[in-house]
Design a protein around this nucleic acid. Structure first.
Lengths: 162, 162
DNA sequence: ATTCTGTATGAAACAAAATTGCAAAAAGTG
DNA sequence: CACTTTTTGCAATTTTGTTTCATACAGAAT
């Protein structure tokens, strides 16, 4: 399965907004039967277009969590130390997101912690304990203006069939 | 409803991992009946702990999307221009995330675009067209090491009752 | 102590949704 | 056009979610 048709794109858009939407409703909206929708969702899942299905929580209600954006520059850009850092960041539950980027910084992290004390402890483990890290800078988020991972699918051409 | 008990925390953890887990399975795992789980989920939703339920898509399979981390510094920090920028970024579908942060940059954005050309067009609209923006810097993500919005709930104390 | 009240629970009944089987329609192929 | 493959809708079945109901328990008031 390489291509998506317009039905698939509509389904993905709807599921991104609310994956509890009944298949019947999805079918009504896009003009398919519930069974057809169900088969397509299964295929989209099996083929890896849909990675996971999650509930999004309100971090503001979960104990005054602090969100911090962190830029990290590595000392040397050897592939081993990069890979090592990647798996370290990936395995850390407090690190919500990690991007390996081009430019004068190597990583950008989004970290969520219950307190600044927790964050300081994290910095010790993640950054100070690691000699390969040259410099890191913390930007405390004072407003989560927009969060989520919704992907715009408008750019996808919609062929009649797959 | 102010507090969460250990059942609620377990439920939220499971739903963050997979919100299609049947309520019966959740109940079996944590030691409650399906009905009790269902009532708790409803309450967690009604009280705003659960914000939304979404399918997470694989951006790599959706047409070679480019993810860009952008730092934005404003010319003046008047509240009007900040608020204006916030609503501009928030309303832009290509902007997945937007954090208003402290430090020598004011905003950090996560942008997803189907091509560099699209991104350039976006920069024109978002940054060059706006005189209040002093400087912006783009960091192209070459690896989405970790994505998602999973929140660790381990820090929450678990009282016996609500 | 006892009653009353509010809340949470499990079991069972019920409703709604998802899944499957199958024949028909549509799309693709030579 | 005939043939193959794929996708579809419908209906039956199964699974899941939701509501109901009787009960248990904790705290407050009597």
């Amino acid at each position: 399965m390489t291509e998506l048709d317009s039905f698939d794109i509509s389904i993905l858009n709807l599921l991104q907004a609310d994956n509890f939407t009944p298949q019947r409703d999805i079918g009504d909206k896009i003009g398919l039967s519930a069974a057809a929708v169900q088969r397509r969702i299964k295929r989209l899942t099996d083929t890896g277009f849909i990675v996971s299905n999650t509930s999004v929580l309100n971090s503001q209600k979960l104990g005054n969590l602090i969100t911090i954006c962190v830029t990290v520059a590595m000392e040397n850009e050897k592939i081993e130390s990069i890979d090592e850092a990647k798996s370290l960041f990936k395995s850390c539950p407090e690190v919500q997101q990690c991007y390996y980027v081009t430019g004068d910084t190597d990583f950008i992290l989004i970290v969520v912690e219950p307190s600044m004390h927790h964050y300081e402890q994290l910095c010790r483990r993640l950054f100070f304990a690691n000699p390969n890290i040259k410099r890191f800078r913390s930007f405390i988020a004072t407003d989560l203006v927009k969060i989520g991972s919704k992907i715009t699918l408008d750019h996808l051409k919609a062929p009649k069939r797959k």
